[in-house]
Simulated assay, not measured.
Amino acid sequence: MASGEQTEERAWKRILDNNKGAFLILFAELVGASMDAIARFLQLGGRSFHPFQVIFARMSITFILSSLYMWYTKVPDFPFGKPVVRGLLLTRALFGFFGLWCLYYSVHYLPLAEATVFRFLVPIVTAWACSLLLRTSFTWKELTAGIVALLGVVIIAQPAAIFGHTPDTPHTGTPIDAVTPRQRILAIAISVLGVLGASGAYTMIRVIGSRAHALISVNYFALVSTIGSTLILLLTPSLSFILPHGFREWALLILLGILGFILQFLLTAGLQLDKSSKATSMLYTQIIFALAFDWGIWGVLPGMWSCIGGAIVIGSTLWSALQKQEKPVKGTVKKADEETALLGAQAGDTVEGVQRRDLRISGVGTI
């Protein structure tokens, strides 16, 4: 009996050891979905925090924690990075700030699952942008996947000019019921714009490469988002800071910032440990967590057309991400850039192979 228990324990330990990276990525996606759920809850709660105040709460705390960690661990070139890449880091941060605002705006009017689906367009758009700026390859398969994914977006949006009827928004006695077709279409349009923001951020990360530590890039993003959201809240007459009331609101706002910092570590560690296609697959589990939060908190489940469109988007981008390198290029990677560091360069990886794999995976986890 004892021998059987030891054998079972060894089997479980072997499973955990072999899939440690995948489990970390899975946990990272749960953290990411939790952050989106908290942001949506704060906006739809009794006092309706504005998206810019939610961004301020998340990014100010992330900035403080990230700065303390880099100071304690003596990260090279902290806090501003090398002078040659500071402009690129600032551009990356501006793109990220815009993409994050688009995300938080969209979750005010869309279920989490729908808002999450649009993020899966980011790797394809990033690959296309890098093909223009960095002369990386952009294959016909990636182009086809992008066109099919856009078809999925159209099916989710269900424009009246094509479908001729009101979109099948869920009706469950929740604030979603108050969303008009016009607000829904606008939220979807802003989600698509957010894809451009996130893709711009990841393109800049590829341009920066190994010239800046990953956390310095995150810190620029957090600082710009904190300053930007503060200025908008102070200078816009119709907007203002709402002081959190009670323990729950304080706890949620603080938790949002802490989770943002934890997400960076989990995603980085998981992608370092898992160098296989399992990493890509696990990144897509966020949609499952989003569906669970939609149903558990708001009692919302997507309509039929939203499910069909979402499946098309996820299927086409996942297919693109799992494609193998067709033509190896001479020369191996000797020094990893930020995205390669997330994945861990494998022996025998080619320059183009690593770049294409990175582009497919980047953007699925977080901005």
Rank of each mutant, 00 (worst) to 15 (best):
I227S: 02
V313D: 05
G353Q: 09
V31H: 10
S217H: 03
T285N: 09
E326L: 01
S34P: 05
L42F: 03
D274Q: 14
T366P: 00
A93Q: 02
D349T: 06
L103Y: 05
F78S: 02
I61W: 00
G173H: 14
L150A: 11
L301A: 13
I185D: 07
L259W: 12
C307A: 13
D17L: 14
V351G: 06
H245Q: 13
Q53M: 10
I227V: 10
G296A: 12
A127E: 04
A345P: 00
L291E: 07
V224S: 06
I287N: 01
F221K: 10
V351N: 08
V333R: 12
S281P: 00
L233Y: 11
E352W: 04
Y69F: 06
L132N: 10
T236C: 05
L186F: 09
V84A: 03
L239R: 04
K334F: 05
S67K: 08
F80N: 02
A279W: 02
P181S: 12
W319L: 07
W128G: 05
L253C: 06
G21F: 09
Q53D: 14
E29Y: 07
I242N: 10
A345S: 03
T180G: 14
P111Y: 07
Q323M: 05
I314H: 00
F23A: 15
F138L: 13
F163K: 05
L253D: 06
A214P: 00
L255V: 15
G146R: 09
